[in-house]
C-alpha cells in the first residue's frame, strides 16, 4: 500500500535524491513522498512554478509511483492557486508528463522542457504574432539581460537597428540579476528612445537563463550544453517564427565561457533554421572592453563614478541616483557573478 505524505525534513529528501544521483533542488516550497510502510520509494518537489527533484526508487519503477507523484503535485499546485507548471525532464520520461496534460515546448538531446498551463506559450506566441502584424516581414532581434544596460548594448542595438527594417529587443525576464527586471527594461527603453524602429518586449518564461536552468537535473558538464540547446530550441520553434526574425544580433563574448559556448551553439542551430547570426565585436573604451559585469564589479568595489564612461547617460543617472541605493548595497554585499 503506497501512501502519499508531505516531507518536511530536508535531509530525508536530500539522501533519497542522492541515492538516485540527483541533487537537492534549491528553494523547495513543497515535497511529497510516496511511502511503502515507513520507506520512501518516490519523491517530488514544487519550487515556485516548477516541479523538481522527482525520483522513484528503481525497485519500484513501473508501479505507477511517478504518476502518483505527478498527480499529487499538480493538485497541490492548483490548491496553491497557481495554474502554471514547468518541468525539465529527460527525453525518455517526457511521455509520463504528457499524459497529464503537459506540453513539450523545447527539446534537446539531454532534456525536455514541458509546460502545464491553460495560457502559457500559446498565449505568448499569440501576443508576439499580434505584435508582428504591422511590422516588416523580415526582422532582427537581440536577446539581452541588460544588467545594467551599457554603451556596449547601445552600440549593438544601434547597429542592428540601422541594418534592419525592424528590431526586437527581447529582455530576459527572470529576476535573478542584481538589477531587477523592471529597472533593466526601463533603462533599456530610456536609453533607446531615440531609435524609431524597435520594439522592446519581455522574454516571458521562454528565455532560459542559465541561472534558472536546474542544476539538480543533470551533470555539471552537461548542464551548459543542455541549457543552451534547450533555450535555442524554444527560440527557433516558438519565438522567431512569430516575429518573422531573419537575423539575431549578439555581442562577442570575451569573458564568460558559458555565454561564448552559447553563442557557438546559436550559430549552429539558427543557421539550420535559416536565421543569420550576426556577431558584433564588443566596443572598447580606452582599451577596456565594455561589459555589464565589469560595471557591476566596479560598483561592488565602490567605484561607482568611474562607471560613467561605460554607460549611456540614462543608465549612469540611475546608477548614481538615490533610487538605486538599495541595488548598490546589494551589489556591494554580493559575490554573485550576476
Amino acid at each position: 500500500m503506497f501512501i502519499e505524505r508531505r516531507i518536511l525534513d530536508v535531509s530525508k529528501i536530500e539522501s533519497f535524491l542522492e541515492n538516485l544521483g540527483l541533487k537537492l533542488p534549491k528553494k523547495i516550497d513543497y515535497t511529497v513522498g510516496v511511502f511503502y510502510g515507513k520507506e520512501i520509494v518516490g519523491i517530488g518537489s514544487i519550487s515556485g512554478n516548477t516541479f523538481q527533484g522527482i525520483g522513484v526508487d528503481c525497485r519500484f519503477q513501473g508501479e505507477g509511483i511517478l504518476g502518483k507523484i505527478i498527480t499529487h503535485l499538480i493538485k497541490k499546485t492548483l490548491e496553491m492557486d497557481n495554474d502554471e507548471i514547468y518541468v525539465y525532464t529527460k527525453p525518455n520520461q517526457s511521455i509520463n508528463f504528457e499524459s497529464y496534460g503537459f506540453k513539450k515546448i523545447g527539446q534537446c538531446e539531454l532534456a525536455v522542457l514541458l509546460e502545464w498551463s491553460s495560457k502559457g506559450i500559446k498565449d505568448f506566441k499569440e501576443s508576439l504574432r499580434k505584435l508582428s502584424l504591422d511590422k516588416p516581414k523580415e526582422t532582427s532581434c537581440i536577446v539581452m539581460n541588460g544588467n545594467p544596460m551599457t554603451i556596449g548594448h547601445l552600440e549593438l542595438i544601434e547597429k542592428a537597428a540601422k541594418e534592419s527594417p525592424w528590431l526586437y529587443i527581447i529582455v530576459v525576464e527572470e529576476d535573478c540579476s542584481l538589477f531587477p527586471y523592471d529597472i533593466r527594461i526601463k533603462l533599456i527603453k530610456e536609453g533607446t528612445k531615440h531609435i524609431k524602429n524597435i520594439s522592446i518586449i519581455p522574454g516571458g518564461q521562454y528565455i532560459i537563463s542559465s541561472l534558472t536552468f536546474p542544476s539538480y537535473f543533470t551533470r555539471e558538464d552537461e548542464l551548459v550544453k543542455a541549457h543552451a540547446q534547450l533555450d535555442l530550441d524554444i527560440f527557433v520553434r516558438h519565438i522567431a517564427p512569430e516575429l518573422n526574425i531573419a537575423n539575431r544580433y549578439v555581442g562577442t563574448e570575451p569573458y564568460c565561457e558559458v555565454t561564448s559556448y552559447y553563442n557557438e551553439c546559436m550559430k549552429n542551430k539558427l543557421e539550420r533554421f535559416g536565421i543569420k547570426v550576426k556577431e558584433i565585436p564588443r566596443i572598447k573604451v580606452n582599451g577596456d572592453i565594455v561589459s555589464a559585469s565589469k560595471v557591476r564589479e566596479m560598483i561592488r568595489l565602490g567605484k561607482v563614478k568611474e562607471t560613467k564612461r561605460f554607460l549611456p547617460e540614462t543608465t549612469y543617472r540611475f546608477v548614481i541616483s538615490k533610487e538605486a541605493e538599495k541595488i548598490r548595497k546589494k551589489i556591494k554585499a554580493s559575490d554573485s557573478r550576476h
Partner: peptide
C-alpha cells in the same frame, strides 16, 4: 485519515 493527503 492518514493514508489521504489533506487536499484529497
Amino acid at each position: 485519515e492518514d493514508a489521504i493527503s489533506l487536499g484529497e
